[in-house]
Simulated assay, not measured.
Amino acid sequence: MLRPSETLCKATSISLGPLEEGVLVSRINRFVAQVMLPKKGLVYAHCPNSGSMLSCCEPGRRVFLKNNGSLVRKYPFTWELIDMGSSLVGIDTNIPNRLVSEAFRLGVFPGYEDFRIVRREVKTGDSRLDMCVLREDGKGGRLWVEVKNCTLLLGKTAFFPDAKTLRGQRHLRELMRLKKNDESMLVFVIQRQEPEAFSPADFIDPDYGKLLRDAIKEGVKVVAFKCKVKKIVCLHHMVPIRL
């Protein structure tokens, strides 16, 4: 019999497909990185992460790119992974939403196994949240879910955000508003394997940290998962939230 973490990982596995290994030269802006490939030389790769990427964009590190094979894209390569020594780190901020959506859809999200009808990118108030999830039998209220990608690591603790985020603050306020009539949840997906806990990055955005604590007091469910990260990425298990 599979353990709960193994069941979750098997159900949410996302293959990154064939990847080419290279060395990170520099991240020249939020969306583009220079990478040296053994056979192709210096290439430019799209960076699917507009955050600061503190603790996971060190030049000289081994990285993995996907060749999209497109003749029309400005940058045919996409940066998918970086090897930080103690763990591979997932770069793509779209992956967490896909992982969480699959966990709900397949009935393996811990404690919410009967919430399986997933609606993505739902507008509510002045915000657009990642998903609204309903019970399979159609009974009961809605579960509003916002997902955040997390890669910042200090010691054995993962932190969010890695830059001041007014958008993230707005999402927290919206989750608190929705909690008055429905259930609401914030899910942090840590795309690396080392963390033993998660904390808000008060040293980067103290306003976000305060709002997160307020949201928890108001009944917003907050959870953090760390991932197994290889050429296949999956949710593995929850880590404790330390406030």
Rank of each mutant, 00 (worst) to 15 (best):
S5A: 15
T12K: 02
I14E: 13
S15V: 09
L19V: 03
S26C: 11
I28D: 15
N29S: 06
F31G: 03
Q34W: 03
P38F: 05
G41S: 11
G41H: 14
Y44N: 14
N49F: 01
S50P: 08
S55D: 11
G60I: 11
V63F: 02
F64V: 04
K66Y: 08
K66N: 09
G69S: 03
L71V: 15
K74P: 14
F77T: 10
L81E: 01
D83V: 11
S87K: 08
N97C: 04
F104G: 00
L106F: 01
G107L: 07
V108A: 12
F109N: 05
P110R: 14
D114S: 11
F115T: 00
I117D: 07
I117C: 05
I117N: 09
I117F: 00
V122K: 01
R128S: 09
L129Y: 00
K139A: 00
V147N: 11
L153P: 01
A158G: 15
D162N: 11
A163S: 15
L166W: 14
Q169F: 05
K179L: 12
K179H: 08
K180T: 12
E183P: 01
S184H: 06
V187Y: 00
F188G: 10
V189Y: 00
I190N: 00
Q191G: 02
A197R: 01
P200Y: 12
P200A: 13
D202P: 05
R213N: 01
R213H: 01
V223H: 03
I232A: 07
C234A: 07
P240D: 05
L243M: 13
